[in-house]
Design a protein around this nucleic acid. Structure first.
Lengths: 332, 332
DNA sequence: CAGCTTAATGTAACCGGTTACATTTCATGA
DNA sequence: TCATGAAATGTAACCGGTTACATTAAGCTG
C-alpha cells in the first residue's frame, strides 16, 4: 500500500514535507513541491483518510435513523439531509430502522464509538442509552419528535395542520368524518388526532371514536381500514388519513365497493407525496417542505458538532400548506 | 475522553489486559476480568472504533450510489442492501447522486481513501478514475448495469421482461403500442426498447418510432409523454411505460382526456412498486425482486472484499414476473 | 523442592497521517 | 566575514487501540 513514507522516500524528502505539500503548499519551496507532486503522481498516492480522521478525531460522517425508507415522504427528507450534508463536506450513514430500538441503539453506537460525529433521528425515540457514556453525543430529532426531547428538534405543527384539513372537510358540509390513524404510540399520530378533535369541537360536534381506525402508514393498511369504515351501519361521508400512502389504499377500497371519490365519500391525506397529484382522483393533502426538514436538521446538528451551543436547545417549526385537489367535495 | 489507558489505570492492569478482557475474555482470569469490567462500567468506556478500524485497516462501511432515492424501486433495493449489510456487520454510506458524475466520483473516493471498504453502484457508470490508484477498489454494479462492466453485476434481463410485457399487449389484440422511455443514455432503456421491438418483430409488426416518447422515470414525465401520444392523429391503443411512476402519470393524463383505462387505452408499467396495486386501475407491470438485488449485491461485494476472488467476474441475472392487473385489457 | 509446563499479565511496536519543535540553509546587513 | 533572522525542511511524538513477544506467576511431576 502506498503511504506517505513511500512517497517521501520517492521524492527524497521527509514525510512532513509531503504532508505540507498536500495541505499547505504555500510553505513549501517550488522545487520541492514539484518533486513531491511528481512522486505522489508516480506512486498513485491517495492519503488514507482513516488515519486523518483518527488523528483529527473527526469522521465527517453523520448517522441518519429512518423508520422506513420505503415511505416517499422520508425519501424526500433524506434527499434534503444528503444534499445539505454533502455541501458541508459530510457523508451520511443511513439506517433503515423499521422502528426497531435495538437496531437504532446499535447505530447510535456509531456515534458513541466515533465512527460518526452526530446523529439525526426521524422517529420519536432517543437511541442513546446510559452505556453511551455520560456526555450526550450530538443529535437532532426531526419529523416525528419526542415531546420532551433531549436535543434540538425540527417538526411540523401537526395538530394545527390536522385541524386545517378537518376544517376543510367541515366547510364542505361533512359531519361524520372517519379517521385512519398512524401507529398508535407515535406523538405524530396523537397530535394529528388532537387537531382533528379540535376542529370538531370548535364546530360543536362530538367526536365519535368508533370512526377512528388504526393503520401503519402503508397502502394496504389504509385499504383495510377503509373497508372497515365502509362496513359500518352508518359509514362516514369523508375520511381523513394521516398520510397519503394510506389515503391511496383507502381510495382504492372505496372504489372497489362501487363508490366514487369524492361524490360519495371524500378522502384527505397528509404529506403531499409525488403520487398525490397523479393518482385518480388527485389527493387533497397537507404539503410539507420535506427536503427542508432534512436541511434544517443537518444545519442544527452541525451547529452542535462545531460547538455553536446557542443551537443546543432550538426547536424549529416548519410551515405547511393545505393543497385542495379532487379527492374532497361537498357532503351528500 | 475515556480511553483504554484510563480504564487500565482504574483497574490497576495494563492496556493489553483491558483489550483482552473485551475481545477474548476467555484468556483473562475471572478476578481480573471482573475488575476490568467494573472499571469499564465506572468510566463509561466505549472503545474508539476509529482507532480499531485504523489498526485493522477495515472500516466495515460500504458506499452505495443511488441515482435517486425518491424512486420507490430504488428505495426497496436500498432496503435490501441495508438489511444484508447490517446482518454482516457493515454500515451503509448512502449517496443520492442524481446521476451527477462528479458527485459519484467524490463518493467513490471514500473507498480509495479507505473510509469505506467497497462500493455498490446502482447506475451504469464506473465512478473510479485513474487517480484512484492502480488497483481497482471493490465494487459491484447492480440494477442499471454497464454493458462491459469492470466488476460483478446484478441485473434483470430487461430485454426479456419487456418482450413479455409487449407479448401480453399483443395477445390482447393491440397493434399500435406507444412506448414511454426512460433516460436516453441508459442501457436499461435501450434493453427494454429492444425487448419491445423483439416482440413486435416476432409478431410480424413494424415498430413505429413516432410512438416512442422520452421520459425520465418520474410521474410528471409520464403525464407529459402520454399527452403527447394522445394528441397524435392516430393514437396508440396501449402504452408500455418503462417504469410504474411514469405509468401512473400516463394513466392520469389519459383520464384527464376523458378516456378510460383499460377500456379505451391499456397501460403497462415496470417495477411493481407498492402503489401499483393500489392505484385505479391497478397496474399491470413487471415485478422485480428489488430487495434481492440489494442482498445479492452486498453478498458479491463482500466476497470481493474478503478475497473470495472466484466471485470477481460474476454476473447474476435476477428473475422477473409479469403481474397482470386491471390496467390492460382487450384492444378496441 | 527443583524443574518444567502452562496460564496470566505486561511491554512496546505498530497502523499512517499531522504538527510542535529542532535543525539546517540561505540571504542580508554590519 | 560573521552574526542574525527568516524560510525550508527534518525529527519524532502523538492519536487509541491490537498483538507479538517477553516476563512473571501458578500448577504439576517425580
Amino acid at each position: 500500500m502506498t503511504n506517505i513514507r513511500k512517497v517521501a522516500e520517492l521524492a527524497g524528502v521527509s514525510v512532513a514535507t509531503v504532508s505540507r505539500t498536500l495541505k499547505t503548499p504555500a510553505i513549501v519551496s517550488p522545487g520541492t513541491r514539484d518533486r513531491v507532486l511528481a512522486a505522489v503522481e508516480q506512486a498513485g498516492y491517495r492519503p488514507n483518510l482513516m488515519a486523518v480522521q483518527f488523528r483529527s478525531q473527526r469522521t465527517r460522517n453523520l448517522v441518519v435513523l429512518v423508520p422506513t425508507i420505503a415511505n416517499t415522504f422520508f425519501a424526500r427528507v433524506i434527499g434534503g439531509i444528503q444534499e445539505a450534508a454533502q455541501r458541508r463536506g459530510y457523508g451520511i450513514l443511513l439506517c433503515n430502522t423499521l422502528g426497531d430500538e435495538r437496531t437504532e441503539q446499535a447505530y447510535a453506537g456509531l456515534v458513541s464509538t466515533r465512527q460518526a460525529d452526530g446523529l439525526i433521528q426521524l422517529r420519536a425515540y432517543d437511541p442513546f442509552t446510559a452505556s453511551d457514556g455520560k456526555a450526550r453525543p450530538p443529535m437532532v430529532n426531526a419529523c416525528e419528535v419526542l415531546d420532551k426531547s433531549p436535543c434540538p428538534t425540527v417538526k411540523l405543527d401537526n395538530r394545527a395542520a390536522a385541524r386545517v384539513v378537518t376544517e376543510h372537510l367541515l366547510t364542505l358540509g361533512h359531519r361524520r368524518i372517519g379517521m385512519i390513524k398512524g401507529p398508535l404510540n407515535s406523538p405524530l399520530t396523537r397530535d394529528r388526532l388532537l387537531g382533528f378533535q379540535d376542529a370538531l369541537a370548535t364546530a360543536g360536534l362530538m367526536s365519535d371514536e368508533s370512526l377512528w381506525c388504526p393503520g401503519d402508514f402503508t397502502p394496504p393498511s389504509g385499504h383495510r381500514a377503509a373497508g372497515d369504515l365502509l362496513s359500518r351501519a352508518d359509514p362516514p361521508t369523508a375520511i381523513f388519513c394521516e398520510n397519503d400512502e394510506m389515503a391511496m389504499g383507502a381510495m382504492r377500497r372505496i372504489k372497489e365497493a362501487g363508490l366514487r371519490v369524492p361524490e360519495d365519500i371524500s378522502v384527505a391525506g397528509f404529506d403531499d407525496i409525488a403520487f398525490a397529484s397523479f393518482c385518480d382522483p388527485s389527493l387533497t393533502t397537507i404539503a410539507q417542505p420535506a427536503e427542508n426538514f432534512g436541511r434544517e436538521a443537518v444545519s442544527l446538528l452541525l451547529d452542535i458538532i462545531d460547538g455553536r451551543d446557542d443551537a443546543a436547545d432550538e426547536h424549529r417549526i416548519m410551515p405547511f400548506e393545505l393543497v385542495v385537489r379532487e379527492s374532497t367535495g361537498p357532503a351528500v
